[in-house]
Simulated assay, not measured.
Amino acid sequence: MTLPSHNNSAALNKTAVVTGASTGIGEATVRALADAGWKVFAVARRADRLQALGTQTGAVPFAADITHDDDVAALLAAVTEAGGADTLINIAGGARGADTIANADSEDWDWMYKVNVLGTMKITRAFLPMLRENGEGTVLNLTSTAALAAYEGGGGYNAAKFAQHAMTNALRLEEVGNNLRVIEVAPGLVYTEEFALNRLGDKEAAAKVYAGVEKPLTAQDVADVVKYAVSLPHHINLDHITVRPVAQAANHKLIRKEG
């Protein structure tokens, strides 16, 4: 999927910080923005993957855990020293487990809340002064359709993503006076190498998530939507974008073809 670009020459003066950059949608977003001429700071925990991505794309790799205050402070200092950024793209997140609430694993819930909610809050809080000072700053949060409708076995992920969705809406209200653009992109079923595997911990179980779905979204599909949203002229705010494969009319309505 390729969406039309907007004023690619202007991208030469644009700088984005992208979290979750070592895999999946985060990695694809780094590639999409770098290809469009953006300067990109690629942020994730796995330094080896980031170094390879930086070599391939020209992005600046920065290994950090966004749930750790010291890592966030070090990232902010590095970006500041390099001239700052006008766009923060929060993609780091994820799901663990598919248990019912009656069988909920406290460690899974704790991890999901820390990464999806507290991590997003910490890095956003740190970069807000820089984005305000820029005068035309943008924050884009990648949530999920799990933030819009609950489903059985999704309680922990629903709770984390509903919270991230609410935080995004609050941020938009709080920062509009600073001309800060706040965007939410909520993908449905996206096929990536790690999301379902990390959630379920088993390759066979992960494969069943996508079984029979002819064309799930890809990481590149979502990255193209993210790039489009942040590349529009700054006065245009796409408050909320829900993006699903055609086969998925709702979280509970997914067409699978017989194999």
Rank of each mutant, 00 (worst) to 15 (best):
T2K: 15
A92D: 05
G177A: 08
Y151S: 02
E152K: 15
L171D: 02
E174M: 10
A78D: 04
H6Q: 06
T100R: 06
D108P: 07
E136W: 00
R46G: 02
L232K: 08
A147K: 00
G201Y: 12
F41V: 14
V225S: 01
S231N: 11
E133D: 10
D35P: 06
A47S: 13
I25V: 14
D69W: 03
R172L: 11
R132D: 03
E258V: 10
F162T: 11
P216R: 05
R45Y: 00
L173W: 03
A159L: 15
A47C: 01
S22F: 13
V139Q: 01
L180E: 00
Y210M: 13
T23C: 11
V30C: 01
A211S: 15
N141K: 06
G155R: 03
A85W: 09
A223S: 07
H234L: 11
D108L: 04
A229K: 01
A32S: 09
G20F: 09
D221L: 10
A95E: 13
F127A: 06
G156D: 11
N116Y: 00
E184S: 10
V182D: 02
D108M: 06
K203Q: 14
M1Y: 14
G177N: 08
Q248M: 14
P233F: 08
N134S: 11
H252I: 09
Q51A: 12
A147E: 02
F195G: 01
R49W: 04
N158D: 14
K114N: 03
T87C: 09
L180H: 01
L50C: 07
H165G: 04
G58N: 04
N103T: 15
T57F: 03
G154T: 09
K122V: 04
P61I: 07
H252V: 10
V190L: 05
P187L: 07
I183W: 03
E107K: 13
G156M: 10
T145R: 02
V243I: 15
R96N: 08
A78I: 06
I89F: 01
K114P: 00
D69C: 03
N169S: 14
